[in-house]
Design a protein around this nucleic acid. Structure first.
Lengths: 334, 334
DNA sequence: TTGTAGGCGTTATCAG
DNA sequence: CTGATAACGCCTACAA
């Protein structure tokens, strides 16, 4: 069923049908009714591809996320809120999971596929894998979040990791912690590297010494956190508090503690990063640093839209992380 | 940059370029090289929309999921694995979140949008919201999972809720539990209704009495589970074991227990449903019934593909839930 | 206000 | 093996 067939049945030209579909208001009301009746009757839907082709606009944007092991709710929320923001503005979203474990340059493959689909812009919310997009030819607007180097033609949502990190460390310092450990995640991910740097700056400004021994470089996954915590506990002098690069790792750490008969918030202080919904439901509930996927996702879409529609005044978006106090911290236990 | 421009620069006709792009092997190797050189040089990418239009195939499928509050990792994994399966076969995925809270018929809106985009098929993995698709005109193959009524022209991945449920209840019965509670989720969701029915059947076959009092109809969310558990505990004679309609609710229940100084796996037995990655990381780890999003998602895509490509022998896919023993159960404590 | 003709970027069918 | 030419479904001047 196409526009010509509708035209035939409504005894008008196909341009008139086109006008009706597009709410052009110079059409005789009687014809409008006649056309709409036919459209209703046959259940006609305009072909979006043809439309896109004719108009030169696809009204589609791409979203690339990077997912290590398939279990991090963080990206689920990113996708949900990005999609919601997009649909609200009449855009469709093509989602790609960059499988950076197998191929670091997989982000580039995704971007290429998206461009063939004529996306009007791409948001790469991969938090560290953006570097692999450098080489490849991209000729649509792009948005990153928390990229550590500003690129030409790329919009970057600045992430202030320090705000939350500083308050977290201050909180620990006020408890008297002097041996603060860190589960770093893979430092090859720029976002995790930046978090780590923020941690070190925060230590400095709180006057707490930095000890390289207390840093466990582990995967930022459930299991990675569990393993990382084990190695910290095996230290001759384990830390009295541990900050984690994300909540998932922190929850893994909680597991290890429990296995050793230790309790976070009593025997050792644990702080996560992200503030996933689940943080409220761990035992004990997880003190963390808020890095809201929903807010990041909507900022990213908004920025992308500004690029696409070439807005006059482009807003400088910045997201400030925020310390969220719950129950997993305590004074150092010697 | 289009096929004609490439043709001009390579001094061939655009049909030849088209042939080169599509690996038609009747082209003079010298011309192939000449064309490919130009393609490389200018970084040309075929326009997928135009291609889809000309070929009459979009190579795109739709995936509708239903997400209550944005925090359930279950759907994140569904999307991840569905997308992966699709891309492997050269399909792109349009994801929609049906916001059934606000509008139950939102699934229909999503389906309509997808059809305008010329998806070749739709998988509605909404586990209960499929009913709202009944009325609306859909003229592409569809796949459901666990729909409770078989529809014409709709492929249904049969879900055997009973297998896992029966073993779970048997496990509890062997411990001697006679008062087994249930956190039901909203029974207006057909999938949750089916789980509930499976629970009752399982009770019967294990010879455990069913007591309506022990059923808390709550949201199948973190908070819902927490509230539901509270109401069960407030009963004059609370259950000694509780089965939950999903893991997220079970984890909410764990929270309530902890708040009351009770411990799952010691004071009361708790069993979840889904087997999210996080189950291994709760305290205690969560005994559950495996309803694997990754497996369901790939089954769904495979079934959809069979429909789309009109496979000869269509497989009858069935997914069997499976009991997974961890640490959150124990003998009844009186 | 309506209709005709041409174009969007590709594929596909024919002659040559 | 190659190159015109006509689709695919829609939009949009421009002309009537």
């Amino acid at each position: 069923m196409n526009i010509r067939e509708i035209a035939r049945r409504a005894r008008v030209s196909h341009s008139t049908v086109s006008r009706v579909i597009n709410n052009v208001d110079t059409v005789d009301p009687r014809l409008v009714r006649r056309v709409q009746a036919v459209i209703q009757e046959v259940g006609y839907r305009p072909n979006f591809q043809a439309r896109a082709l004719a108009r030169g606009r696809s009204h589609t944007v791409g979203l690339i996320v990077s997912e290590l092991s398939g279990g991090n709710p963080f990206f689920s929320e990113i996708i949900l809120y990005f999609e919601r923001a997009a649909v609200e503005q009449g855009y469709e979203v093509l989602v790609s999971f960059a499988d950076t474990e197998i191929r670091p340059d997989h982000v580039a493959v995704c971007a290429a596929r998206m461009q063939e689909r004529q996306v009007e812009g791409i948001a790469a919310l991969t938090f560290g894998m953006e570097q692999y997009l450098e080489g490849c030819p991209i000729d649509v607007p792009m948005v990153y979040a928390g990229a550590d180097h500003t690129l030409q033609h790329v919009r970057n949502i600045r992430i202030n990791y320090l705000t939350g990190m500083r308050d977290a460390v201050k909180h620990l310092a006020e408890f008297g912690h002097q041996r603060i450990g860190y589960l770093s995640g893979q430092l090859s991910w720029s976002s995790l590297r930046t978090r780590f740097e923020a941690f070190r700056k925060a230590l400095k400004s709180a006057g707490v010494p930095f000890d390289k021994e207390l840093v466990a470089e582990c995967d930022h996954t459930w299991d990675g956190g569990a393993l990382g915590m084990t190695s910290l506990l095996n230290l001759p002098k384990p830390p009295t508090a541990v900050l984690c690069c994300n909540d998932v790792a922190a929850i893994g750490a909680l597991k290890t503690l429990h296995g050793k008969g230790l309790e976070a918030g009593k025997d050792i202080a644990i702080i996560g990063f992200d503030d996933l919904t689940i943080c409220r439901f761990t035992q004990p509930s997880l003190t963390t640093i808020r890095f809201s996927p929903s807010e990041i996702a909507s900022l990213a879409f908004r920025a992308l839209l500004e690029e696409i529609e070439n807005a006059e005044n482009k807003t400088e978006y910045e997201y400030k992380t925020r310390f969220v106090l719950r129950e997993s911290t305590c004074a150092p236990k010697l």
